[in-house]
Design a protein around this nucleic acid. Structure first.
Lengths: 231, 231
DNA sequence: CGCCTTCCATGATCCAAATCAATTCCAGTG
DNA sequence: CACTGGAATTGATTTGGATCATGGAAGGCG
């Protein structure tokens, strides 16, 4: 799991600098010393639901899905985390969801106990975590509304509007690849693979999207998709 | 909206004391001075989705529902807040959900901008907010799983396990009243009133619950209900 | 007390999405 | 290059919960 050499996370350092502004250099060093970079390939599990929470992570690059599942196989993705965001910020002793890499991912691992000390020393870090958890709470509310009250078409349209292109920011508006299988999209939207597939082909027939080789989705009519997504 | 006299919130002060431990008394006073108690009756709206976020609230007593709705009438409760918890902690400029009193509620209103200053002064307050937002994030994940993957029976059973009795803690195990209409329960669980009603009467037939006058629900077979709820 | 009004229960019917069931399509791989 | 296995599409059928419709019970109020 942790082959990566002991490296300082540049992304975090940069972010830390911008957020912690006036911190003395020595503080930044001590911050850096509590972190290390770890790389995960697509489909690798980063943390497991129910395991004792020892670390928390900041994403340097790549995308991570958080999911929960029941013994009978029912699975639900409860969140998607993009570069710069934190995950596995558990409330108590245990992780509340499993985290798995959706793309190649480089994460910055923080020791939980050490971070607690650092937060006391540098409130700016805490402020950043707080701000981010509000954003995630608002995103969770979006998903709750989507799951509770939207139709399959609305769900898929919302998903495309929200996430397509977020996976490789360089080619953002050209291809908007979504490196998720139909099953994963279904597990995000509370649907089945078949339904996701049917909705996507129906969108393709209506010229709302184009489905290229390797299942890349390109958005053709963003305005109409936004209208279908509703809010 | 704001008839209440300018009063210090004892609950908050007590909590603040326990969480802020070593703060000097003068700090606590300055904290207290930024707060005031406000009372809302059942069905009164406390804040509106989309309105500019100026305050945030701590619940002294009572229960609050947070919901979002679409122009076509579809409504989804995205969270329930119990005594001691904060709400309307918005990410940006606007509230992300409407907050409405489910019971008589006494809340402690904090000015957003002032709290920001205070947080910088007293990291302990920030730590408490952070801890609470993690808990709410975990609760949101529960709800996401429930909405995406559970059946109507499982949803209702989960709801009863989670919330019955939380509304008047004194009589916790005697009656477990749930002061929500069938419609509100439906809007929480992503169902319709009719389905909630049918599931509850079927639970009553199976002696899992008893439905008393004024629609109080009493749980009769908690073990079996927990099993139905799944996790 | 009787008249609303809101909430709840329950039956009949419908429908969106799930389930079941084949193919088809690729991306590897030897 | 053919083989293989996971992923996607597509069709047929079923079904859980929505929708429609009606009647009853409870609380509020003139």
């Amino acid at each position: 799991m942790e082959h990566a050499p002991y490296t300082v996370c540049k992304t975090c350092t940069i972010r830390t600098k911008s957020f912690c502004g006036a911190l003395p250099v020595r503080s930044l060093d001590s911050l850096a010393n509590t972190r290390r970079l770890v790389r995960f390939e697509r489909r690798q599990t980063i943390v497991c639901e129910g395991a004792t929470a020892v670390s928390l992570f900041n994403i340097v690059s790549g995308v991570v899905k958080l999911y929960r599942s029941l013994p009978d196989g029912r699975t639900q993705i409860v969140g998607i985390r993009l570069p710069g965001e934190f995950f596995a910020i558990a409330d108590g002793e245990k992780y509340t969801a499993t985290a798995e890499a959706l793309t190649s991912v480089v994460v910055c691992r923080f020791s939980r106990s050490r971070l607690k000390q650092l937060m006391q020393q540098f409130p700016q870090i805490q402020a950043r975590l707080l701000e981010m958890s509000y954003r995630h709470l608002a995103a969770a509310q979006d998903q709750i509304f989507l799951l509770g009250r939207k139709t399959a078409r609305e769900k898929v349209a919302s998903f495309l509007m929200r996430y397509s292109g977020k996976f490789d920011p360089e080619r953002m508006d050209k291809y908007r690849r979504v490196p998720m299988t139909r099953t994963e999209i279904a597990d995000f939207l509370g649907l089945t693979t078949e339904t996701v597939s049917r909705v996507l082909t129906s969108f393709a027939r209506e010229k709302l999207v184009a489905i290229d080789l390797s299942h890349s989705v390109r958005l053709l009519n963003i305005d109409l998709l936004r209208k279908i997504a509703g809010n």
